[in-house]
Amino acid sequence: MASQGTKRSYEQMETDGERQNATEIRASVGKMIDGIGRFYIQMCTELKLSDYEGRLIQNSLTIERMVLSAFDERRNKYLEEHPSAGKDPKKTGGPIYKRVDRKWMRELVLYDKEEIRRIWRQANNGDDATAGLTHMMIWHSNLNDTTYQRTRALVRTGMDPRMCSLMQGSTLPRRSGAAGAAVKGVGTMVMELIRMIKRGINDRNFWRGENGRKTRSAYERMCNILKGKFQTAAQRAMMDQVRESRNPGNAEIEDLIFLARSALILRGSVAHKSCLPACVYGPAVASGYDFEKEGYSLVGIDPFKLLQNSQVYSLIRPNENPAHKSQLVWMACNSAAFEDLRVLSFIRGTKVSPRGKLSTRGVQIASNENMDAMESSTLELRSRYWAIRTRSGGNTNQQRASAGQISVQPAFSVQRNLPFDKPTIMAAFTGNTEGRTSDMRAEIIRMMEGAKPEEMSFQGRGVFELSDERAANPIVPSFDMSNEGSYFFGDNAEEYDN
Rank of each mutant, 00 (worst) to 15 (best):
M1Y: 11
M1L: 11
Q4D: 00
G5Q: 00
G5E: 00
S9C: 02
E11K: 11
Q12S: 15
M13D: 14
T15F: 08
G17M: 14
Q20V: 00
T23I: 06
R26F: 13
M32G: 06
D34G: 12
G35W: 04
I36Y: 02
I36T: 14
Y40G: 01
I41W: 10
I41A: 12
M43T: 12
E46N: 10
S50K: 12
Y52D: 03
Y52F: 11
G54L: 03
I57W: 04
I57R: 06
I57L: 15
I57A: 09
Q58M: 07
N59Q: 04
N59E: 05
I63Y: 07
L68C: 09
N76M: 12
K77Q: 09
Y78L: 01
L79K: 03
P83Y: 06
P83G: 14
K87Y: 06
K91H: 02
K91M: 10
K91T: 00
G93M: 11
G94F: 06
I96M: 12
K98A: 06
R99M: 06
R99F: 02
D101Q: 10
D101Y: 05
D101W: 01
K103Y: 01
W104H: 04
W104F: 15
M105R: 06
R106Y: 09
R106K: 14
R106Q: 08
R106I: 06
E107P: 02
E107H: 14
L108Q: 12
L108E: 07
V109T: 12
V109D: 06
D112L: 11
D112M: 08
K113S: 11
K113A: 01
K113R: 10
I116K: 04
R118A: 10
R118G: 06
I119G: 09
W120P: 06
R121M: 12
Q122R: 08
A123I: 06
N124W: 12
N125F: 12
D127Y: 06
D127N: 11
D128K: 10
D128P: 09
D128S: 14
A131S: 15
G132H: 06
L133Y: 07
T134N: 10
H135C: 07
M136S: 02
M136W: 01
M136N: 03
M137K: 13
I138R: 01
H140V: 08
H140I: 09
H140C: 09
S141N: 04
N142R: 03
L143D: 03
L143E: 06
N144I: 13
D145K: 07
T146G: 02
T147C: 13
T147P: 04
R150Q: 05
T151F: 04
T151L: 05
R152N: 04
A153S: 12
L154K: 04
L154I: 15
V155W: 01
G158K: 01
D160E: 14
M163R: 00
M163K: 02
C164M: 15
C164L: 01
C164A: 15
S165C: 13
L166C: 01
M167A: 02
Q168E: 03
G169P: 02
G169N: 09
T171H: 04
L172V: 07
L172N: 04
P173D: 10
R174D: 05
A178M: 12
A179E: 12
G180P: 03
V183D: 08
V183Y: 05
V183E: 10
K184M: 13
G185C: 07
V186C: 08
V186A: 04
G187D: 05
T188A: 14
V190P: 01
M191P: 01
E192V: 03
E192Y: 12
L193F: 07
L193H: 03
M196D: 04
K198V: 08
K198A: 08
G200M: 08
N202R: 03
D203K: 12
D203C: 06
D203H: 08
R204N: 03
N205W: 06
F206D: 01
G209R: 07
E210T: 05
E210G: 11
N211W: 09
K214A: 12
T215K: 13
R216T: 13
R216K: 14
S217M: 13
Y219R: 04
E220R: 08
E220P: 03
N224P: 09
N224C: 06
N224I: 11
N224L: 08
N224R: 04
L226N: 09
K227P: 04
G228C: 13
K229D: 04
A233H: 10
A237W: 01
M239H: 02
D240H: 13
V242S: 08
R243K: 15
S245M: 01
N247M: 10
N247A: 13
P248V: 11
P248Y: 02
A251G: 05
E252R: 04
E254N: 10
E254H: 11
I257K: 05
I257N: 09
L259I: 14
S262K: 02
G268K: 03
V270D: 10
V270L: 12
A271H: 03
K273M: 07
S274N: 12
C275F: 09
C275S: 14
L276E: 09
A278T: 07
A278M: 12
G282I: 10
P283K: 09
P283R: 04
A286K: 09
A286D: 11
F291E: 04
E292Y: 02
K293W: 02
G295D: 13
L298Q: 07
L298D: 09
G300K: 09
G300W: 06
L306D: 10
Q308C: 15
Q311Y: 02
V312L: 13
V312R: 00
S314F: 04
I316M: 14
I316W: 01
P318E: 02
P318T: 10
N319C: 11
N319K: 15
E320W: 08
N321I: 11
N321Y: 12
P322K: 05
H324S: 12
S326P: 02
Q327G: 10
L328Q: 09
W330G: 05
W330N: 05
W330D: 14
M331S: 07
A332Q: 07
A337S: 12
D340H: 13
D340I: 01
D340V: 08
R342E: 05
V343P: 02
F346W: 06
I347N: 10
G349A: 06
G349V: 10
K351F: 14
K351S: 06
V352T: 07
S353P: 15
S353M: 12
P354C: 14
R355H: 09
R355I: 08
K357Y: 09
L358R: 04
R361P: 03
I365A: 05
N368I: 11
E369V: 09
M371P: 04
D372M: 10
D372S: 11
A373R: 14
M374T: 12
E375R: 01
S376R: 01
E380D: 12
E380I: 08
L381M: 13
R382C: 11
R384N: 13
W386R: 09
W386H: 13
A387E: 05
T390Q: 01
R391D: 02
T396S: 13
T396L: 13
N397G: 00
N397R: 15
Q399L: 07
A401V: 00
A401H: 07
S402N: 01
S402G: 01
A403S: 13
A403N: 14
Q405S: 07
I406R: 08
S407H: 05
V408L: 12
Q409A: 15
F412L: 15
Q415T: 12
Q415C: 08
N417P: 11
N417S: 09
N417Y: 13
L418G: 00
F420H: 15
K422I: 01
P423D: 04
A427M: 15
A427Y: 02
F429P: 01
G431N: 05
G431S: 09
E434P: 12
M440R: 08
M440T: 04
R441Q: 05
A442R: 00
I444G: 04
M447F: 15
M448V: 06
E449L: 12
G450F: 09
G450Q: 11
K452F: 14
K452N: 13
E454T: 12
M456S: 13
S457A: 11
F458L: 12
F458D: 01
R461W: 11
G462M: 04
V463G: 10
L466V: 09
D468T: 14
A472C: 14
I475Q: 01
I475E: 00
V476S: 00
F479A: 09
M481D: 00
Y487H: 11
D491W: 14
A493N: 12
E494Q: 11
E495K: 13
Y496L: 03
N498Y: 01
